[in-house]
């Protein structure tokens, strides 16, 4: 319940921020049945053991959407009520009854949109108890820039407009005003650097022969050969986001100045809903 105690503001979010991992209880058959019922998705592969075996699977399987639900739980917790604008996931590996999934996430992008909308991209992924990547997702959410921005918008005023350059200048000034804590000259936004963490994506079996694989975005990685569980080409190259490859190598090191907004990354279509909250 403390979840909603305070907002998450854009000014406090850095690229590279990690979400605290969420370890879910084992996915059991009761949960699978319950989910299939609640979601209205009664695919027999989820609920009919015999059917699944006859189809060549070792057992019934869990809906991919259940694992996506875990990613959503993690993201929504962390976002504390901020508005989710887009959410997608690819079901990389089948989730089986008994699997224990851990959902993880990391901020990969923060954007200053011209209209005064501030959005962050969070890459999300779930691993099973064997450390295998089962689900990979991306969530885009819209935040208030700051308490001031929230107060204005709640009072029906236009959003606070801050540009990336202004923010950078303000932070630079701040860091000059305070004696540097550590030798490096980057304007660190908060005291602590992100803790060392397992790299994303989690280690994968070495890829046979293909050096720089232009990872194919398509779907359908998962479900090929259930019964025999061949190591079929390990799976397509890991890719933070299944989607548009327009993402820059937003990797870790400089979690500092937010980048200019990426012109390339418009969704093909936009929900017609209102922009502001």
């Amino acid at each position: 319940m403390a979840l909603l105690a305070r907002q998450l503001y854009f000014e406090a979010v850095k690229v590279g921020d990690e979400l605290p991992p969420l370890v879910k209880p084992p996915v059991d058959r009761v949960q699978i049945a319950r989910y299939a019922g609640a979601a209205g998705d009664l695919n027999p592969l989820y609920v009919d053991e015999q059917f699944a075996r006859n189809a060549g699977f070792p057992s019934a399987l869990a809906p991919g959407m259940l694992a996506m639900g875990f990613l959503g739980e993690l993201a929504a917790d962390w976002l504390r009520g901020a508005r989710v604008r887009r959410f997608g996931a690819r079901f990389v590996k089948i989730v089986w009854p008994g699997d224990v999934l851990t959902a993880r996430g990391r901020v990969t992008e923060r954007r200053f949109e011209p209209s005064g909308a501030y959005t962050v991209d969070i890459e999300l992924w779930a691993e099973n108890q064997r450390g295998e990547l089962v689900t990979r997702g991306l969530c885009t959410a819209q935040l208030y820039y700051s308490p001031e921005d929230e107060a204005r918008q709640r009072a029906g005023q236009p959003p606070l407009l801050v540009t990336a350059a202004e923010e950078e200048a303000r932070l630079a000034k701040l860091s000059r005003a305070q004696p540097a804590r550590r030798p490096e000259p980057m304007p660190q936004r908060t005291g602590l650097p992100p803790p060392a963490r397992p790299p994303f994506p989690p280690p994968l079996p070495p890829r046979p022969g293909t050096p720089p694989p232009p990872p194919r975005p398509g779907p359908a990685a998962a479900p090929a050969r259930p019964a025999a569980e061949k190591p079929r080409a390990a799976k397509p190259a890991p890719r933070p986001a299944p989607k548009k490859v327009a993402r820059k190598p937003a990797k870790r090191p400089a979690a500092k100045a937010p980048k200019k907004k990426p012109a390339a990354r418009k969704p093909a279509r936009k929900p017609a809903g209102k922009k502001k909250r």
Binding site: L45, G64, M68, R85, P219, A222
Partner: peptide, 15 residues
């Protein structure tokens, strides 16, 4: 045919 859900995308106008 067996149906396997392999990917899902959602865009929201509002919650």
């Amino acid at each position: 045919r067996l149906i396997l859900h392999s990917e899902q995308q959602i865009e929201y106008g509002r919650p």
